Simulated scan of single mutants.
Amino acid sequence: MKYYYSYPNRLCLIWICEEDKYITRVSFQKPDDSYKEQETPLIRETARQIDEYLDGERTEFTLPLNPQGTPYQKSVWNALQRVYFGETRTYKQIAEAIGNPQSCRAVGLANNKNPIAIIIPCHRIIGSNGKLTGYAGGLEIKEKLLLLER
Rank of each mutant, 00 (worst) to 15 (best):
K2M: 06
Y3M: 08
Y4L: 03
Y4M: 05
Y5K: 12
Y5D: 07
S6H: 12
S6P: 07
S6K: 11
Y7L: 08
Y7F: 15
P8S: 10
P8Q: 10
R10V: 07
R10E: 08
L11I: 12
I14N: 04
I14W: 02
W15A: 11
I16S: 01
I16L: 11
I16G: 00
I16M: 05
C17G: 09
C17K: 01
C17P: 02
E19A: 10
E19D: 06
E19F: 02
D20K: 15
K21D: 12
Y22S: 10
I23Y: 00
R25T: 05
S27Y: 01
F28Q: 04
D33V: 09
S34C: 06
E37Q: 13
E37P: 12
Q38F: 07
Q38M: 13
E39A: 11
L42I: 07
R44G: 05
E45D: 14
E45G: 10
E52C: 05
D55K: 14
E57N: 12
T59N: 11
T59L: 07
E60A: 09
L63H: 05
P64E: 10
N66G: 03
Q68S: 14
T70F: 09
Y72K: 14
Y72L: 12
Y72T: 11
Q73D: 13
K74W: 05
K74G: 05
K74I: 09
V76S: 02
N78R: 15
A79S: 12
A79Y: 05
Q81V: 04
Q81Y: 05
R82L: 08
V83K: 02
F85L: 11
F85A: 10
F85S: 12
G86N: 09
E87R: 15
T88Y: 03
T90G: 08
T90C: 09
T90W: 01
Y91Q: 03
K92N: 07
K92H: 08
Q93E: 15
Q93W: 04
Q93N: 07
I94V: 14
A95P: 02
E96A: 09
I98V: 15
N100C: 08
P101G: 08
Q102W: 08
C104R: 11
R105Y: 13
A106C: 06
A106K: 14
A106F: 09
V107M: 07
G108T: 03
A110G: 08
A110K: 03
N112D: 14
N112I: 04
K113D: 12
N114V: 02
P115C: 15
P115W: 03
A117F: 01
I118Q: 00
I118R: 00
I120M: 02
P121Q: 06
P121D: 03
C122H: 02
C122L: 03
R124L: 00
R124W: 01
R124N: 01
R124I: 02
I126E: 03
K131T: 10
K131H: 12
K131L: 11
T133D: 06
T133G: 12
T133N: 13
A136Y: 03
G137K: 00
G138L: 11
L146Q: 12
L148D: 04
E149I: 11
R150P: 04
R150H: 13
